[in-house]
Design a protein around this nucleic acid. Sequence first.
DNA 1: AAGAAAACTTGATCGAGATCAAAGTGCCGG
DNA 2: CCGGCACTTTGATCTCGATCAAGTTTTCTT
Lengths: 296, 296
Amino acid sequence: MTFVSDLESVNFRTEFLYLHMRNMFWRDLILLRSPLDVSQAATPKMSGSILRPEELPEIRHLHLFRDMTQASFETLMASSYAQNFPQGLEIIRQGDPADFLHIVLEGSVELFAQGAGRECTMAVVRPVSTFILAASIRDAPYLMSARTLERTRIILVPAPDLRAMFRRDTEFAVSVINELAACYRSVVRSAKTLKLRNSRERVASYLLRQSLLSGGATSYTLPVEKRLLASYLGMTSENLSRTLRTLEADGIKMDGARVIITDREKLTALAQLDRLIDGPDAFSGQSGSGLPAAEQ
Amino acid sequence: MTFVSDLESVNFRTEFLYLHMRNMFWRDLILLRSPLDVSQAATPKMSGSILRPEELPEIRHLHLFRDMTQASFETLMASSYAQNFPQGLEIIRQGDPADFLHIVLEGSVELFAQGAGRECTMAVVRPVSTFILAASIRDAPYLMSARTLERTRIILVPAPDLRAMFRRDTEFAVSVINELAACYRSVVRSAKTLKLRNSRERVASYLLRQSLLSGGATSYTLPVEKRLLASYLGMTSENLSRTLRTLEADGIKMDGARVIITDREKLTALAQLDRLIDGPDAFSGQSGSGLPAAEQ
DNA sequence: AAGAAAACTTGATCGAGATCAAAGTGCCGG
DNA sequence: CCGGCACTTTGATCTCGATCAAGTTTTCTT
């Protein structure tokens, strides 16, 4: 039963180990589900599995949890667990039953999909936000897999508690409705981008949108590796690399992961940003289907 | 003020007329919003704008409305309108404010998206189901446009009434949550198909999935025109036509809009259906993002 | 039933983007 | 500080799917 703390130091490599470890992990969490058990489990070895008091306000601040009663919030948190994961760990495999709503507190998580022998990035989730709300509500299998991109701390809210809660707390139900509607719209936007824009347009609009997200910065750092960005935008990294190069004729200059907008007017003309695809309420989506905002 | 009944006989052609008519239409509906006004407006000329009593059970039967109290249901319906539209009319333009939840009672509606000078089909909605739930809940602009594919009867439920209702009726709130979560998952599936499968795989899996939807029929009729199917699958109609032709080597035979599965085993091997993309709960989605089931 | 307008098919060609291959670059651990 | 590994870039080539251009069939209109 030392695997939980081991997680933080060991770099699991083989597929077999991943699966084995994950099975143990879920089973143990489930065995410990009641609040009482959690506190009993609060030995040094299980230190990863209790919420720290200072984390609660950050969670409470999320749209999803902002409007519920304090009592409801505390009940939900009392049945939740925190867990730290090392970098590069697949914490969710698509197809598995969705037992928990996940909240990223530190680190970052890539949501990706597999199929037809391929794999693609669907979103990257940064603190503080939730993911796979829909699956946990429908009590259905995950449609996406998730892996940590760095050392990551996650809160796990049991799906049954979640479902019980929005029946008891109307304000929470309304929050869930709003969150789901926002997520839905976010994926629709992303489907529209895939169907309506070619790869050059997707890159250009992404770059300009990121600049606007950083308050119109002329220069910013890409929030994710180019490899991930390419996959998210539905292209190969070779193609992204070449596209970025050719965009130097249209107002963009790259310097490593740094984007410098040299001619905003030209870029704006090219990107053809669309209010319905690129904002403004696309920005609010926490976990719908997007990449995090860029750092300045 | 005779335009409402005119709608059914006149075939509007020009973009200008479309817009003009639509603007009048919305404005008038809004002016007539309270139930009292509706009944006053129930002159022969406005006959399209009241619900027929026999339609209520059909609506009530939808997942979305099934679990709410009878009183809530009646209240919601009392503030709703029915409207008949002729074929080929754009009833929603993307970007407009979402004032109503739409319920298709007869006919069919294409949801499509425009941008970057292109256009693509996102879904086709058949009776009895709802569409644009998310936009009306968020009080946000529509992300998709909608046009009738034939003469279509639609119920319009005012968005503010909808939002008021799920605050008052918890069971309804839960239904909305479930519906939105299902819609979300449906779009994610469709995004996965776009990103992970090439066009041949999309066609093959679509054809096999339709067969399974019709209870494993060896022969069925495509539920929509090939033109629309192509756009929905993210390809040109020329390419769809050619792909269908080449699939004759893999267990499919086309005869007009009729699909005949000649070698199910071969097709199954090719289509590589994925539980997470192609079912089973993909079937339940009423209005998420898909095409209707095929007729046998 | 005739004519017109869509929808669909087929062929020829083109090009965006994928794939394959090989450097080049940066980052992390020892 | 060095070595290794993953990320990135660049080049060459290929392929899938778009585009353009006729035809053919079906459907709608008159």
